[in-house]
Design a protein around this nucleic acid. Structure first.
Lengths: 250, 250
DNA sequence: CGGCTCATGTAAAAGCCGTTCACATGAGCT
DNA sequence: AGCTCATGTGAACGGCTTTTACATGAGCCG
């Protein structure tokens, strides 16, 4: 018995030295493997080479460990969205789409974080710190939407930025949840989740009256000139782009 | 001891008579209360008044009970979507939106089913029956999208119906997951989830070139109340903005 | 250096769950 | 009546979470 345990002890002594971080890392791995539901406090302890009771010196209970991971996830999420947004460079629409892709990329590349953040059933609003972190991440989308809303072509009503942000968020989250992760990702789709979301956002923006057929914009000036076209009030914005946002001949 | 137990026995005899159904109902209640993660096989058994081992006569394990519930959920879901679609009456766009609302209504009114179906972490594609049920439900959306796609105004490219269906699904699922259930529903929104989704779908459809301003044009002609104000930053000028799909006078 | 203290880790135990197994019961058929 | 098989019981195993009393040793103070 405890041949391993003795060895571990020999390696690191009675005190671990960095147990909290070790537990977070272990948990992250376990969640990635088996989902937040399957993740076990005891397993994390074992993986860190300590007894099952040790984690309680660093986390009130299993849920607090999960919350810590979710929070860390929101922080990284925010960082990635911020980087993707890049303050709207080179132009607002391009940057906006990059944010959408970053959303999906995060869901795909950090399944453990995403799981803890959105699929673990944590009471988000029970933990103020967690809620704040979540809000900071959302604020990136919100800020981007605000910039986009300000670009509304003259003549078209300017959409409420908050609503736009919520719409975009729901699209990204919907695509990520349904098609971009784990089992559900196996559904046979006519296109990749990235393409699906990109088309969805483009169509949506077009519905708001934004010109979405931007091609390599000449460096420099921000707003692509809006064609001074008179759109018939209730009518359809004259869709440029023959083939639509989807007809990608690859 | 087991004063209760003896009583139960007296009431129903050694054999329960309808345990399977009783377990399903009990589980449904428990999931609604505490989520699929918190739901316990033992609890369901207790609630049905039988020993902890009894459920194993009817379900291979806890997961199979969960799957049964998810499957039943997909069936009811399909039924509700079918009813909402009503074969496209009175007109395709109206019926289409009704489907969206039915999606949200289901998520709201049947949290236990929705939880089991979409948030329980069940390996959907591991269970063929479950997957089939899920597909049948999705096919309602797909069929509706097909009808809608066929209506594409002449001159505009006809969008792939499958893509539209996936888009709509992701919107509905995104809104339901993020804003229409449990804790997350507490986020202070500028509008209800229903309105949010309706606006989202309408804008999307407009982006595809569909005329979306069908609406009894009678009644109070004008006042476009600035949609529930939320943006603090680049505020919307309180002036004009004749309402788009969002400025609902209602 | 010697000793104190307190954060950190351990072992043991209680209580809950899921799951299995041998056994009990009784409903329905012959 | 007797048989049989589906259905329910109780006990038991192992695992998980969480608490409690105790052990260890790192850092500080004189």
């Amino acid at each position: 018995m405890s041949w391993r345990k003795e060895q571990r002890r020999a390696e690191r002594g009675y005190h671990h030295g960095n147990l909290k971080e070790a537990l977070l890392q272990a948990a992250l791995g376990l969640i990635a493997e088996k989902g937040a539901a399957g993740f076990t406090f005891a397993d994390a302890a074992r993986m860190a080479g300590v007894s099952a009771a040790a984690p309680y010196r660093h986390f009130r209970d299993r849920d607090e460990l999960l919350s810590s991971i979710a929070q860390r996830g929101f922080e990284q999420f925010e960082a990635r969205l911020t980087a993707a947004w890049d303050d709207g460079r080179p132009d607002t629409v391009t940057a906006f789409e990059r944010v959408g892709k970053a959303y999906l990329a995060f869901a795909r590349e950090e399944p453990a974080f995403y799981n803890a953040m959105f699929e673990s059933g944590l009471p988000v609003d029970a933990n103020p710190a967690l809620q704040a972190a979540s809000e900071r991440a959302f604020n990136i989308i919100r800020a981007a939407a605000e910039r986009l809303a300000a670009l509304a072509p003259p003549g078209t009503p300017r959409p409420p930025a908050m609503m736009m942000a919520l719409h975009i968020w729901s699209m990204a989250h919907g695509v990520a949840s349904l098609f971009s992760r784990g089992d559900a990702a196996r559904r046979k789709l006519p296109m990749s989740p990235d393409e699906l979301l990109e088309a969805e956002v483009l169509i949506y923006l077009r519905g708001l009256g934004f010109p979405t057929d931007r091609r390599p914009p000449a460096k420099g000036a921000e707003p692509p000139p809006v064609p001074p076209e008179a759109s018939s009030g209730s009518g359809v914005p004259p869709g440029g782009t023959p083939g639509g946002p989807w007809g990608k001949p690859k």
